[in-house]
Design a protein around this nucleic acid. Structure first.
Length: 355
DNA sequence: CGTCCACGTCTAC
DNA sequence: TAGACCTGGACGG
């Protein structure tokens, strides 16, 4: 479930399902959870949500108790409280009746309805966490989806940072700069641009502008028969946008797939699966990066690929039968690093000529 | 039964 | 740069 798009879908889910719902009493935590208690209790409060990168913030807001018994009862909240969640590998929200509480519902908010319904933070593996009176985690960068301008500026203005010495695929998981990108998004984004995953990040990013020029760029449809393959590729890149723009648009595609995603139980998963072009896709290559995370890609891995790195299990087919693998033969195997770098230079040259 | 793998951080040598 | 932190599904014997 949880990369930037899923966290945002989770916030939409909460706002939709909890609109007009009144919650009451204490916030309850499972016995087994090691996350902190949420010291909030109130006879009547409402819940709203917002997301930023890979975090969701719930705001618990006490409702006006009209007459008001001045100061209210002891322990009753009269001020809003924010709770900031990270989802780990398996977190999500659900809204169910009390007797349909999912397994692993580790934090629960109870409505006044009869029968009572419960908003639950469900997290099977318990890698997720929450912080009462929380704020967006310091050190996480701007949201790739909803703070695009500052996200871009943050990357472009820090390219001398040692963090960018690493391969681009590993830097894309650095939440200080790419808050919201996770393992499937890095694969999909690099795949779209045919960027070898283990190219030094600075090489890929240097020369990109703080401002996204793609809107101003002329769509020069080059129909010249003499157009070289490289020039064609250059034009394609222009229409698509640069790497930083795709870090914004590709996650938004997932958000726009529909309000699905948020319920892993329901098998609306098929839309998402069909959307994936590279991650876990049959015929793609995969190797472990320097942090032991599986990088999915096509073609040349790039010069900084871990030397030893055994690719994790060739690929365990299952599920679907399919596998008429004519696709493999149609795939252009032409993307090596040098070809990529050459295109990249032509691309930037072209930008400067147009601007 | 067992091994491997998973959408992510964290902190400890 | 390892591990630690967890549960559970898929697959192998």
């Amino acid at each position: 479930m949880p990369e930037g798009p899923e966290l945002h879908l989770a916030s939409l889910f909460v706002n939709k399902m909890c609109a007009g719902v009144v919650f009451t009493g204490p916030v309850r935590k499972s016995e087994v959870s090691k996350s902190p208690d949420v010291p909030f209790t109130c006879d009547a409060y409402c819940i709203t949500a917002a997301s930023r990168g890979k975090e969701v913030k719930l705001t618990l807001t006490p409702m006006k108790s009209d007459g008001a018994k001045r100061g209210g009862k002891a322990g009753q909240a009269d001020q809003p409280m924010d709770v900031v969640f990270r989802f780990g590998m398996s977190g999500f929200f659900r809204f169910t009746t009390e007797d349909e509480l999912p397994k692993h519902a580790h934090l629960r908010f109870y409505s006044t309805e009869k029968p009572c319904r419960v908003l639950s933070f469900v997290d099977t593996r318990r890698f997720g966490s929450w912080q009462p009176d929380g704020t967006w985690q310091a050190g996480r960068g701007p949201c790739i989806m909803f703070e695009y301008k500052s996200f871009r500026e943050n990357v472009v203005s820090h390219l001398s940072d040692r963090a960018f010495d690493r391969p681009i695929c590993e830097v894309l998981l650095n939440q200080k700069f790419f808050n919201g990108i996770g393992n499937y998004l890095r694969a999909e984004i690099l795949f779209r641009l045919n960027i070898p995953p283990f190219v030094p990040a600075r090489t890929v990013l240097e020369g990109l502008e703080s401002e996204d020029l793609s809107d101003r760029r002329v769509k020069n449809e080059i129909t010249d028969a003499k157009t070289s393959d490289q020039a064609k590729k250059k034009v394609v890149k222009e229409e698509v946008g640069d790497l930083l723009r795709l870090c914004h648009t590709v996650p938004l595609e997932v958000v726009n797939l529909g309000g699905k995603g948020y319920d892993p139980e329901k098998a609306d998963y098929s839309d998402f699966e069909a959307w994936l072009q590279c991650y876990y896709v049959d015929g793609m290559k995969s190797i472990r990066d320097h942090n032991g995370r599986t990088m999915w890609f096509k073609g040349d891995p790039g010069p900084m690929a871990p030397k030893d790195s055994k690719s994790p299990k060739a690929k365990k087919r299952a599920k679907k039968k399919d596998d008429h693998d004519y696709t493999d033969k149609k795939v252009l195997k032409q993307s090596n690093v040098f070809f990529f770098l050459a295109c990249n230079k032509l691309y930037r040259l072209n930008i400067s000529l147009i601007s």
